[in-house]
């Protein structure tokens, strides 16, 4: 009797540690995938770094696969400019929304606005791209500047501004909500108005979390692919202003790093393919930097909170 019990006990312990190993294995799969992604992209990109060179790859403004010219600078400029445009257009709205939801909205308004923002986060980028093509591009085309076809940085920035709004708004809202209630009460008890409390106590206390929200939005903007392909025009060219007004640079067509990969990878071979993988490496590094700074900001906010 005792023999069978202890045999069963051994069996149980065996299952227990076996399951531990199986679960550890599945946890390590994600590490393996990260490693694989990194290794693969690097390995495939290696010929590009070897034959073209990092400097010429990053600073070259010509991208002509037919003549084996591979400079990414125009695409880097395209990605950075469109992200900048999206932040300028989307940030006030996104932060306004976050502050509104966390601090001002009556419960019933929140119950309408919050799910709307969540829904906005789930809408496929291809739908935003479609909307951009059919509605925004013709609108932008109406701006009377020579060479303006509607497809370009402005349309892309507008689409992107809407796409990053939910990311920024929801992360910033969480940051505001995690500010201890005592701070608000302390301020109100001193006779501050709700707005003064918000501006001088709550928002400063949530600053690092809100900044992290913005940085996460940046990462999302840099990584967006399909919607960008659909509205930005995809021309490989340095964006430039068409008139003396420097803002017309946003009417220029452009191509993003992400778009460069998606548009050309399926028919690229040899050095061309390697250059596209190098594009991936550049994008990967850019986003890693952005995300790492967001994480650092969130962590510092945690410590101070």
């Amino acid at each position: 009797m005792t023999g069978t019990v202890s045999a069963r006990g051994r069996m149980k312990r065996l299952t227990d540690s076996a399951m531990g190993l199986v679960l550890l294995g599945s946890a390590l799969v994600s590490v393996t995938i990260v490693l694989l992604i990194g290794l693969f992209t690097l390995k495939e990109a290696l010929p590009a770094f070897r034959d073209i060179g990092l400097v010429r790859l990053l600073t070259g403004t010509e991208w002509r696969p037919g003549q084996d010219l591979y400079g990414l600078f125009a695409m880097i400029a395209g990605s950075v400019l469109v992200t900048l445009g999206a932040i300028v257009l989307g940030l006030p709205l996104a932060l306004g929304c976050a502050v509104f939801l966390a601090e001002v909205a009556p419960a019933w308004v929140r119950a309408v606005v919050k799910p709307s923002i969540e829904l906005l986060a789930g809408i496929p980028s291809v739908v935003f791209g479609l909307f951009g093509m059919v509605v925004l591009v013709p609108m932008v085309r109406g701006i009377d500047v020579p060479g303006n076809a509607g497809f370009g940085l402005l349309s892309a920035s507008m689409v992107l501004a809407v796409m990053i709004l939910p990311t920024i708004a929801s992360v910033a809202e969480v940051a505001l909500r995690s500010v201890p209630e005592e701070y608000r009460q302390g301020s109100l008890a001193l006779g501050a108005t709700r707005w003064e409390t918000l501006r001088r106590v709550t928002v400063p206390a949530a600053r690092s979390g809100m900044l992290a929200a913005v940085v996460l939005g940046l990462g999302r903007a840099l990584g967006e692919t399909i919607a960008m392909i659909m509205v930005i025009g995809n021309a490989v060219m340095m964006p430039e202003a068409a008139t003396s007004n420097p803002l017309t640079i946003f009417l220029s067509r452009a191509r993003t790093l992400t778009g460069n990969i998606a548009v050309e990878i399926n028919y690229a071979t040899g050095l061309h393919a390697a250059a596209l993988f190098a594009t991936g490496v550049v994008l990967f590094v850019l986003i890693m930097i952005v995300n790492a700074s967001a994480r650092a900001l969130l962590a510092s906010g945690m410590r101070r909170g």
């Binding site: 201890p180 005592e182 701070y183 009460q185 302390g186 301020s187 008890a189 106590v201 400063p204 206390a205 101070r304 909170g305």
Partner: peptide, 9 residues
């Protein structure tokens, strides 16, 4: 208040 609640300033 019951618990000291200085602002993070």
């Amino acid at each position: 208040f019951q618990r000291p609640n200085p602002f993070p300033k």
